[in-house]
Nucleic acid binder design. Structure first.
Lengths: 149, 149
DNA sequence: GCTTGACCTCAAGTGAACTTCAAGTGGCAG
DNA sequence: CTGCCACTTGAAGTTCACTTGAGGTCAAGC
């Protein structure tokens, strides 16, 4: 098929065309040429978009994701970075699980107010604990964002 | 002690004073008065801030969190909403766990490129699966954000 | 009495990730 | 050839959660 146009990529990836153009501008994807004004994309853009979506879910920023593609255009992901992200993800999962259990308890808790429930207060302690004030200027952006649209 | 000033609240909560002023403006917290120009806060602002932090971690927006406080100023959180959020959190956790396992595998995978690894490709499928294009205009903001700073 | 420093207000700026808009272009049907 | 319409562009706008900056006030210390 020698190249899909942006509309087809958009349809197949479930993303608006504007997002694809935005990604191209950011260097996350590349078109293989034009037909008239229209971008043509190789079909390998689809797994690449899947990888981008994956990276986003895993908490990488678009900029970080862009850095994961080597010069050859194929993913060249640093294995150390991957392991670090996995560890970070693991810590996040633990916190979220504690949170989920707390929420679930609060949803059925017989205490008249959530504040009187020991489980709820415990959850507050977990949530409030150890916030390292490492934000000197302009959002640190190392953590997870916008997981699970 | 009849009221801490903003600096003390900031210190105890580990938040900058600007954030506290911002939260007050948004109706998330309230000062109990002034000493001169300076805001005074009751000590109950601290658990309240913990609850706000918790809500943020659990994926609620500040606006949603503001809606969780009843007229009496005490948390009046809808139990149905809590359960729904717990379920959402649970789905997110499952995805993240799959992701973590995939990342962890990729970090040690012997395949020359990640793309040639079946586990990695499987992870891509998980990540790329079923994106409901429910984003008509201007950020939906219902998902998790900024978990685990 | 003057300086200092911590607070005050209000407006504007930041950053990520997009979306929206106005104006222009290209290919194809009629 | 003309119209149409889906596409193109670059610039500007949007949202969220804050932060920063300018200019002001006030209580305490020297």
């Amino acid at each position: 098929m020698l190249g899909m146009d942006i509309a087809e990529v958009a349809r197949r990836a479930g993303l608006p065309a504007s997002t694809l153009r935005f990604y191209e501008e950011k260097g996350l994807i590349a078109s293989i040429g034009r037909r008239g004004l229209r971008r043509l994309f190789d079909s390998d853009v689809l797994p690449r978009l899947a990888l981008i979506a994956l990276g986003q879910r895993a908490g990488f920023s678009l900029e970080e994701i862009a850095g994961m593609f080597g010069a050859d255009g194929r993913p060249a992901i640093d294995r150390v970075q991957l392991a670090a992200k996995a560890d970070e993800l693991d810590r996040t999962i633990r916190k979220l699980a504690a949170m989920r259990d707390g929420l679930r308890h609060a949803a059925v808790c017989p205490a008249p107010s959530h504040m009187e429930c020991p489980t709820f207060r415990k959850m507050l302690r977990i949530a409030g604990a150890h916030r390292p004030q490492t934000a000197p200027a302009g959002r640190k952006q190392s953590g997870l964002k916008r997981i699970g649209r």
